[in-house]
Design a protein around this nucleic acid. Structure first.
Lengths: 340, 340
DNA sequence: TTGAAAGCGATACCAC
DNA sequence: GTGGTATCGCTTTCAA
């Protein structure tokens, strides 16, 4: 197999005694070619383990059928790249892209050059870009948008932006979370997360809306800013309890990882969950129900979201305009919060 | 930016009043070209947002600088693709590949055609293949190996195989796990996992070795076969307790997800961990220490493993022969098992 | 140190 | 329905 020269389309055509044009069309299942001929060539290709050279066809057609997916990590290398939620999205995107005939080129913001449009699109490495996460700064993303490259971002769809953003209804999600805690008789509800981050800021708004609606304390000492990792959440909760004691009876966390970090800190102090403190997470990662108590959370529908992202991207690839789309969230009630 | 025709190397060369040859060499930082000229052209390229067309250069050089990473899922679509351990490996590989100038094309066995070598290599989509997981059948992998394509597999490195396998010392891992339980006075130790799966089978061997060394019961009813998901583990443990009561006091699980599923089933029945039953997992996923009790486990060094996999792959890309490599494992003692 | 030109392997326009 | 051929944009040998 490695001794002779690799078979090319021209070679295959010769074997079949047709022209390369015909061979090309046949392998691409072009209906211009007689069905019989098509099938004959496809069989021959299979027999000889022949595959069209993508580099060549990409050069000629100026289409790669590749989508670059960029994990837009905030800063801390290790923590966020292993966030199960982000990786779940990558997995789902992979499925959907493949189903639509695209391949997934994986990157992350720590690696790729600064100028994404240039690096991926102009260089014809990919036809379009999906960015997962807006992070704290969106300048990279705006640059891509300005270049006119097909682009979809997973993030906060309510932010007015020059590009299509697909994301959960974050405000509503945390509103539902807070409301659920209030209905469970929580009076002093903490918000745990990083309000500087676009999506998290929306979640903070929803949390405040619920509290205000129910005339609860929204004092700023109830908003605890911390990184979106379980470690940071654990540390934050641990130290705040040490400082001020247990001055809260509910937590609205900005992610499941954050919720789980908080949960651990509380349990270590023998604080009862959900009776002393109720907790609601955000994401509904696979592990949420494995914990004890299982985690009440706001489910983000990553499967649907991936579908929508790919749809919106394909629209742009076809020259249409894409729009931002809000994905519904859902409260999943489990045992880390009091029901009713 | 979209109005005029896209700039090509020839165009850039004209702008700089040099030949395309010179321009090409300059942008590739070829020392043949005077340093001054090189810098001038690189600056010009940046100024005009110019990037070399990869499709063209790949066609010409017959090198893509892309590595296909294939998640070799067993069967169940949803469960395994979200296994945090596998995705962690993908993330780590991404980092290492990028550092070495390669890009990562993500695929999974459910999607890609049957004939991986053909699909990825002959078609010049990628220069090499990394397969994550041997699954139950290795015929796909062997086909790639037979084709002579650069290939590295994450799996059981002890299996004699025609290709390079990088993987943890699975046998030793579960041996350590079982030994640790025995030292904690466990007498009836369950093995929970799927011994048909290559790596899991090694783990089963290690488990048995430890038991035999200590004259413990190795009867087959102590080996519980179940899928490598937390759900399956939960169901398996639940039903076995229902059937036979609590006839064991230790569990060697084949993965953290499995361990956590078992943990949940036991806690729901108010079985004390680690006093009634001690548990050891395998992997050391990020969440292992968040659980209550935190999970004792066998750590797989994915970072090192990724480095080694890429190294071995690059060797092959350079025409050298690669070898299988065993990665050390480490017992991480936490609270789900009795110490000492 | 630089330039001219051939050619990588497909596709698609135009002819028949 | 099928075939001839120019062409996509770059790299690299050979010549200067």
């Amino acid at each position: 197999m490695t001794n002779e020269n690799k078979l090319t389309l021209a070679g295959l055509a010769k074997l079949a005694s047709v022209s390369t044009s015909t061979a090309s069309r046949a392998l691409n299942d072009n209906p211009l070619i007689k069905k019989e001929t098509r099938e004959r060539l496809q069989a021959l290709a299979k027999e000889h383990n022949f595959s069209l050279n993508r580099a060549a066809s990409r050069l000629r057609t100026k289409k790669t059928n590749v989508i670059a997916v960029i994990l837009n990590l905030t800063d801390s290398t290790d923590q966020s790249i292993s966030d199960p939620f982000l990786l779940k999205v990558v997995g789902d995107l992979n499925q959907v892209l493949n189903k639509n005939g695209y391949e997934l080129l994986l990157s992350n913001s720590l690696m790729a050059s600064e100028d994404w449009a240039n690096y991926f699109i102009s260089s014809s490495r990919a036809d379009g870009i999906i960015v997962i996460g807006q992070g704290k700064s969106t300048s990279n993303i705006e640059q891509v948008a300005a270049s006119g490259a097909p682009l979809v971002v997973w993030g906060d769809p309510n932010a007015s932006s020059s590009y299509a953003v697909v994301g959960s209804n974050n405000e509503l999600g945390s509103y539902l979370a807070a409301k659920h805690l209030i209905e469970g008789q929580c009076k002093n509800i903490l918000f745990l997360g990083d309000p500087e981050h676009a999506e998290m800021n929306e979640r903070h708004k929803g949390y405040r809306r619920a509290l205000i609606e129910h005339n609860l304390n929204t004092s700023s000492e109830l908003t605890l800013s911390c990184d979106i990792t379980s470690k940071a959440a654990y540390d934050t909760i641990s130290s705040v309890i040490l400082d001020k004691g247990l001055f809260f009876d509910g937590i609205v966390a900005t992610s499941d990882m954050v919720a789980l970090g908080a949960l651990k800190a509380l349990k270590e102090r023998y604080i009862g969950i959900p009776n002393d403190v109720s907790i609601v997470g955000f994401d509904d990662i696979a592990m949420a129900e494995l914990f004890h108590p299982s985690l009440t959370t706001i489910k983000q529908n990553t499967k649907l979201a991936s579908q929508v992202m790919v749809e919106q991207l394909i629209k742009q690839l076809e020259g249409q305009k894409a729009t931002s789309v809000v994905i519904d969230v859902e409260l999943i009630t489990r045992r880390s919060s009091r029901s009713n």
